[in-house]
Design a protein around this nucleic acid. Structure first.
Lengths: 341, 341
DNA sequence: CACAGCGCTGATACCGGTTACCGAAAGACC
DNA sequence: GGTCTTTCGGTAACCGGTATCAGCGCTGTG
């Protein structure tokens, strides 16, 4: 009778000689079901290559099988890494990924996001920094009943709702490495105000210098915005200092690349005249010259774990606790050397 | 009665004193509708801030309001640019973007994609190169009844189903620029076999040399795979030649960055000893030292146009024909100079 | 005046699942 | 062996929209 190409739950029920409900029970792994019946239905499902219609399920369950990625991140590489991590976790499941960039500056951002969530009834959300640091959004999710996991540079929420890295410690380690190389005048290019990652990284830097008993004049800290251009501008200011720093820690790789540009423009040799360390270990770090010493931020793993947290406890019974804390490691390349004077 | 927070079409119908169907007509802009009725219903809709449930619509229409981005592209920046372009076009509409990376190498790729399309009943698909060059996928979309637009480096389909750039001409122009600077020994780092973009770009390069009457020995062409490392390896081979080329055209920026690395490693000065041109104008092009002369590929605009083509003729009557052809332009930076000998 | 034609509206079935509720059969207990 | 409970399966309603088609009032015409 049915001319539409799709096989429905009715087809399966008819052929297996049971009711829709029983098929539905099989699909949803209801425990109160005779094993023979279950097997028989499963055979028919396999034979017909039946796949439940996601739209119908979404309507009946009042919830679809979409995971949303909400971000306001300007860094393409980072967003892609996150997407890759999420998709890796979602691979082979019935979930799909929908991307939702938002504009943090916009006054209607929260309202828009609420509309989005209410309409789409997403299964869950992955929140990328810096927007993930906004507590209001987390509350909104909780209120609407949408699962969420926040990614960040430090603990933001309880373990079920966040994955984080240890930026502070990682930067402290990287700075200690510079100090061990003999550097004493080390400049910092900080991240933008209001970014948790910027705060954590700066804190780690300051701690390392304090622990080593090195004074840190305010002039050795320049503000950046995580962009190449801001790194370049900030570096120009630091390199104008007399005496100028022998090393600069930039709070991300983009800005570190900007530092390299600035150094080049005034004829400084890297690493002889200036050592540089970045953060993130994006491809650009390996591709600039000389290759950049940087802190590897395991963002893809974090994203994968975030997605697994969201979808945990659905497929089967084996609820494996996903890690919530990830360690960043220092990648030593050629942009650091002992100071020449 | 209804305790669930959502306002439904029934609420609107009841308050406006009309039937569900009439409300549905208003929503779907049915032309055979009395203006008074329409206005009355519209007022109620506005008052209740009613938004039709996308899941229910998807079920009834057998089609949802999701645009899929199918890609197998390793270049993060490019994928992000495309996403940005699509999202720009989708902003303010009811459409959402779902991302679907595929593995061209996988034997089950086509089957997986078919399942994906049949299940999700996407409204439309944007196909990114190189997967967009696969005719089988286009046929699959047509067969299933899913709209699609293919992005490419040359015409791939009829205007309704593709947007393309003019890579061949763009590379010819860039090569002519090198020739005009005085270069006669120009190396090419080609893209991977089977990529249309690689073929077009190589063709443009060859045409320019032929037009200028410059012989092109096979040894001046090295194969690459669009990655930094492949560019580095290929450049090493070209720079071993005696006499070595005074300029190298790399078929994308990543490989051009690899060329820079290779040149640096053997102490060559850029651009004095070696001029380099890339393709794409990704951020890396502006951030390497010296800044890279490259061809700007308007990929975000293409993606935006692709998404508009997909969703055209829905919202209103004003069907604006979206352009199908986009021009790439040469961006002159500091990586090119006249040959020093 | 009867009836066809047109423009607009609504009752009802339907999309393909899930769930509330109920009936039937099997096992436990007296 | 009969009744109570437990387990299983089925019927019908429902999720929130859309499509079909009949019906309504009004006009034009023979």
């Amino acid at each position: 009778m049915k001319s539409s190409g799709q096989t429905t739950i009715n087809d399966v029920a008819r052929i297996a000689g049971v009711s829709k409900k029983t098929v539905s029970r099989v699909i949803n792994r209801s425990p109160l079901l005779n094993d023979d019946t279950r097997r028989r239905v499963e055979d028919v499902i396999a034979e017909l290559a039946y796949i439940p219609n996601p739209q119908a399920r979404a309507l009946a369950l009042r919830r679809n099988f979409l995971i949303g990625l909400v971000h306001d991140n300007p860094n393409a590489q980072m967003v892609m890494n996150v997407q890759q991590g999420i998709l890796e976790a979602l691979h082979g499941t019935e979930f799909e990924l929908v991307v939702r960039p938002v504009d943090r500056g916009s006054a209607t951002m929260l309202v828009d996001l609420r509309h989005f969530l209410e309409r789409q009834r997403l299964f869950g959300l992955v929140l990328l920094p810096p927007i993930s640091e906004n507590d209001t959004i987390a509350k909104l999710c909780a209120e609407i009943g949408c699962r969420y996991v926040r990614m960040g540079s430090a603990r933001l929420d309880d373990d079920d709702h966040m994955v984080a890295s240890n930026d502070c410690e990682a930067v402290r380690g990287a700075t200690e490495y510079l100090i061990a190389q003999g550097h004493r005048r080390i400049g910092l290019i900080a991240g933008p105000h209001g970014f948790r990652s910027a705060r954590e990284r700066r804190l780690g830097f300051e701690q390392a210098l304090a622990d080593a008993g090195i004074a840190l004049p305010r002039s050795m800290i320049a503000d950046g915005t995580y962009t190449f251009e801001s790194g370049l501008t900030a570096a120009e200011r630091l390199l104008d200092l007399m005496p100028r720093p022998t090393a600069i820690f930039a709070c991300n790789d983009e800005m570190a690349a900007g530092v390299m540009h600035a150094a080049r423009q005034r004829g400084l040799d890297i690493p002889k005249d200036l050592s540089i360390v970045g953060f993130d270990d994006t491809p650009v770090a390996a591709h600039v010259w000389p290759p950049l010493t940087t802190v590897r931020w395991p963002i893809a793993s974090m994203a994968r774990s975030a997605a697994l947290k969201l979808t945990a406890g659905l497929d089967g019974e084996d609820i494996v606790e996903e890690p919530s804390l990830f360690l960043s490691t220092l990648i030593r390349r050629a942009s650091v050397a002992a100071p020449s004077h």
